[in-house]
Design a protein around this nucleic acid. Structure first.
Lengths: 196, 196
DNA sequence: ATTAAAAATGAATACAAATTCAGCTATAAT
DNA sequence: ATTATAGCTGAATTTGTATTCATTTTTAAT
């Protein structure tokens, strides 16, 4: 028998993230992913059924990580709602800080898996949104958030803002800039623009 | 000679927006666009060089409209910075209220034209962002916006939030929901989440 | 009525790239 | 040393669809 050397599955997945980030899913060529992973084209198909599965795997593990961390945060009774909002911002930024390419894929290609034929991915997003809404409603019922805030609308806006911010950061992914985004977003969410 | 009947160019463009919105640019078939526009495949190529040009035309006219209206708003001396922020929100929502499909394309396919080989589209986005930053800095120098707000970061977040909000609205594009988004976003931007 | 040429058609073509698979390679077991 | 077989390769195949263009249709002018 022959033994597998290294971890080709992980190498291919990491390469796919880089190539999808650079070229976008549909422009990305399997040959380029194979080259970036230092394997042959055929090997990509030994580990992944096809190109679409590659993308789905990327989003599955991303959502798993985002949801696991966010759920822990939301259910932590030692945190107040404002700390939970900051925590969600941290969860999202920290999920991409070590892998800017993943952030670019998250922005550019999420809609490719979010289709009626793959309800799983719609569920992921809904679960994430519901966590956000839960924080907002908790803050409202405790009297520390504006009562007239529409939770659904606000969470949608925040999700879009975070996602695009991450994508813009990936254009020049230096850690200092991510910290600027992190602080700026928290500031805006807490207090808004207006001084009064 | 034969005379053109109707306005096929406009019909094709409108059909392309619908099909791109439904299927995404790369999944969309020229045949489906032709059918939706009630013309033949060949006719699409009489009016547009190729599929990419179709997408570029959509974004060109969208950006022209967004920038023209936003520039007028930002340069209106009768408005204070907070009114200008509300105005930008209105400009964006109003640009899609009559055509939800355009909103879906704006979210899903913008990155396809935003590439180094088409600097024009990078410029459009930059111009739009600079208008937003101008409003924020004006508000800060007038002492009505938080001085520690980072204009670039904040504008990026707002842009992403608006774009994703529009896209979520297009999933169920009833006017009442758009008004919920409009009011909710303005509320959040003005005062943030926290009551204190 | 006939004609000229613009407008429109859609079957045929071209082509890019995803996917396959027959053959090759490396290694664990004997 | 030999063998069996899992792991890997990449040229050849298949597939899907964008694009072309020879042909047909329409209508304005004569």
């Amino acid at each position: 028998m022959r033994r597998k050397e290294g971890n080709k599955e992980a190498d291919i997945l990491a390469a796919a993230i880089r190539i999808f980030a650079r070229d976008g899913f549909h422009q990305a060529k399997i040959l380029h992913i194979a080259e970036a992973a230092d394997v042959s084209v055929g090997t990509v198909y030994l580990y992944f059924e096809n190109k679409n599965h590659l993308l789905r795997k990327i989003f599955e593990s991303l959502w798993d990580s985002l949801l696991t961390r966010s759920e822990a945060l939301v259910n932590d009774p030692s945190l107040d709602p404002l700390q939970k909002i900051d925590g969600i911002v941290d969860v999202v930024f920290d999920s991409f800080s070590q892998n800017p390419s993943l952030g670019a894929v998250f922005q550019k290609d999420m809609h490719l898996v979010q289709r009626p034929e793959h309800p799983r991915f719609g569920d992921y997003l809904n679960r994430f949104m519901r966590l956000g809404e839960k924080i907002l409603r908790e803050g409202q019922s405790r009297g520390i958030f504006h009562p007239e805030t529409d939770a659904r609308v606000t969470v949608t806006f925040i999700f879009g803002g975070l996602r695009f911010s991450i994508n813009q950061w990936t254009l020049n992914p230096v850690p200092e800039n991510l910290e600027l985004f992190r602080a700026g977003v928290k500031r805006l969410l807490r207090g808004g623009l207006s001084l009064v």
